[in-house]
Write a protein that binds this DNA or RNA. Structure first.
Lengths: 412, 412
DNA sequence: CTATTTATTTTGAGGCTCGAATTAAAGACC
DNA sequence: GGTCTTTAATTCGAGCCTCAAAATAAATAG
């Protein structure tokens, strides 16, 4: 059954529309908000007045002056940077990055540390996260902290609270959100890193990545963030969209997850090293990142070493076959490849393209382009920031009504 | 940007909620509608009054009398069977089934014919469809025809208008909806048969098949209808969710689609026959259904014939690997297998279960049960009927406002 | 025949958006 | 400098919609 609609639901929904429009562009005049959302000028005035009196939005005086040579100058509205700040944490294998941002999304404080994450217990890992975070927060005084978003390699639960499984730790079911909520008294959330990358790409380049696309992370493991129909694909129970664990070769090479024949068991860094060094596909995957080995494989491939080339070819075939299956399921879409694995993309492109093959139909103008992004960490951080800001925007949507009533009471 | 909401949008939305609630149960008192939807009694009165004056709903006097021993008896409302009728067509290989239903969904007229569909041109196929349909319609006089829904093996476009590709005809891009709209002056739609099966299962057994499940058709080809998050999964361009054409064995057996290694090339009827008769996996798939051959294979398997058993085992492995990949993408879900292929399910179950393997996580209470349904045609027909009725319900949602204004004008 | 019970309908208050009219705040022009 | 023009934003009244509370309807119980 669909949710029913009440008169006050209208305002909530339209407030949300206004905030989303602003979040996409950063700042806008009331008139432009009206044009973009389709709401009447009168309604935009009412909604923005609410938001301004709640300190969410402010008039930006330092706006551009060129556009309209005559008439009353437009007043550009934007998010009040002092309304809130958010915490953003990227948790990767042996590396933790923290960033504090204001409500406009600008960075206030940052810090990064290297630590052997797989050596830590779940509690130790959480402590490491929160102490680095606390250190960064010590620089911040003026804005109240409102949300903490953690992007992490691995699978989180569908409610974005818990790390169910991750290659960066031996521990399962690490209660990330609960830990931060207890410690700092604000809501927190844990997200799959690739989902955050996809979110960031959509924010940075909406003209390319909008309703249907995938972000595939090529690093020690293989991850994917998938947008379908304008929405991030999550599972019923977990963050899911585990592209790397789709079956490539039944009973094939041993995967880090313990099963056999996963795409990752051919395309992950460890798999490429394993294949290039002629190890048996059934030998145990190495847990730690061995950049020097991978660099060696890449260099060998450049010198036409047969095993190194075969390793990349087989990796490409695995990725290509996985994409072909996905294309069968939900039609072709553009793909962004992210991470250190993209350094070798020219060695895999042919195999990927061959495996993807041609679609059954001659549909017009399907974008199946591939693009490459070397650095994943800034994308994870941006994605977490956008996600955290939207959590706050969402809270404003539902709660502002109460604030308004309260102020009315105090006035009346 | 999300769509904005206006006051009249509320009524539309809530009207839709009421119609959906009624469509699920068939009939209900106003009080029960209020309970189920959460709308107040006053609002339900207003909305149902609109719908009754528009002849969409009627009071059903013949309702059950037991429930409330005292008090004013409830008035049960239901769809007015004479408000409209719909056309439903199931188009399968060499078989066309037509059914006319009233607005309650009850069958008024039916007909079925066998015809060699692959021998027909696109135009001939359309003529065959519409002449059988016209014959069935000749029995109907009292209700106006409002929509025709066609369920068809193959891929349709995402707007449900056109048959892009189908195993039942050599023609591509057959404009089914356009043909019927021209001929009968009503809207029409074309849907993938497995999507209709999934829709029917969801209608018939909502307690099992609700937000996340799949219907997999095992017949000459392998198709799937997939619900995720309560919505039917479609592609960006096509009806998609082509489970049968996910890659099972890269460069493997030849598929009907011309590519190699698809799941269907191992699990479709033709593939099972091919394997059981020891033909090369690269030999051309047979186009027509050969029941006698398939019966023979099934019988041989029962007598422990090694090739027949291997054929079913490999089919099970293909289906299982596909499911494992899907489970990696969107978490495990219950599956309904439909069609003649289910006769052999005991021969495939072990292989399917082994290939699916165990999930990475110990998530509580995930329903991954398999259920079997031999007959697909009644499910396709039911699904089309529900779909067509919902098209009408949707039209009512958006258009009733106009009617009301008109009557107000004539009154005032 | 009256009291009780349950189902609907009616009524009035309050929220929301919108179009039209109004006010605000510039530059253009003489 | 004082109007005219232009564009932005606000105010106001009309029209929808939902809801809670009160009123009405239609049975059974006693």
């Amino acid at each position: 059954m669909t949710t029913i609609v009440r008169p006050e639901t209208i305002r909530r929904q339209n407030r949300s529309t206004v905030l989303a429009a602003l979040r996409a562009d950063g700042q806008m005049s009331r008139t432009k908000i009206s044009q973009i959302t389709g709401l009447s000028a009168a309604t935009v005035t009412a909604i923005t007045a609410d938001l301004i009196s709640a300190n969410v939005l402010i008039s930006l005086t330092d706006a551009d002056h060129t556009p309209s040579p005559r008439g009353r100058p437009r007043v550009v509205l934007g998010f009040n940077p002092e309304f809130a700040c958010i915490g953003v944490i990227a948790l990767q294998l042996n590396k933790i990055s923290v960033s504090i941002r204001d409500y406009q999304g600008a960075s206030i404080a940052e810090d990064t540390t290297n630590i052997l994450t797989r050596e830590l217990s779940g509690d130790q890992l959480l402590s490491a996260l929160s102490s680095l975070f606390e250190k960064a927060m010590s620089d911040v005084t003026c804005q109240p902290l409102m949300h903490i978003a953690v992007g992490v390699q691995g699978t989180t639960d569908v409610t974005d609270k818990e790390l169910l499984w991750s290659p960066i730790t031996r521990e399962m079911n690490v209660p990330i959100a609960e830990h931060f909520t207890k410690l700092f008294g604000v809501t927190a959330s844990a997200h799959n890193d690739c989902n955050m990358i996809a979110c960031a790409l959509r924010y940075n380049e909406p003209e390319i990545y909008h309703s249907d696309f995938a972000a595939i992370l090529l690093s020690h493991g293989i991850g994917m963030g998938l947008y379908q129909n304008g929405h991030l694909v999550k599972g019923k129970y977990s963050s899911a969209s585990e592209f790397g664990h789709m079956v490539h070769i039944p009973d094939g090479a041993l995967c880090r997850c313990g099963r056999h024949g996963c795409i990752e068991a051919y395309a992950g860094d460890y798999a490429i090293i394993r294949r290039a060094t002629c190890e048996d596909g059934q030998s145990s995957p190495i847990d730690d990142i061995r950049y020097e080995l991978l660099d060696q494989v890449l260099q060998n491939a450049g010198e036409n070493d047969a095993d190194a080339l075969a390793a990349y070819q087989e990796a490409g075939e695995a990725i290509g076959a996985g994409l072909a299956s996905l294309y069968a399921l939900i039609d072709p879409f553009p793909v962004a490849f992210i991470g250190s694995g993209t350094r070798a993309h020219t060695l895999m492109d042919d195999a990927i393209n061959k495996a993807v093959g041609s679609s059954q139909f001659n549909l017009p103008s399907i974008d199946t382009s591939f693009r490459y992004y070397l650095e994943e960490t800034p994308l994870i951080t941006t994605g977490c920031a956008i996600t955290a800001l939207k959590v706050i925007d969402e809270n404003i949507r539902t709660s502002l009504l109460l604030e308004k009533n309260r102020s009315l009471q105090s006035v009346g």
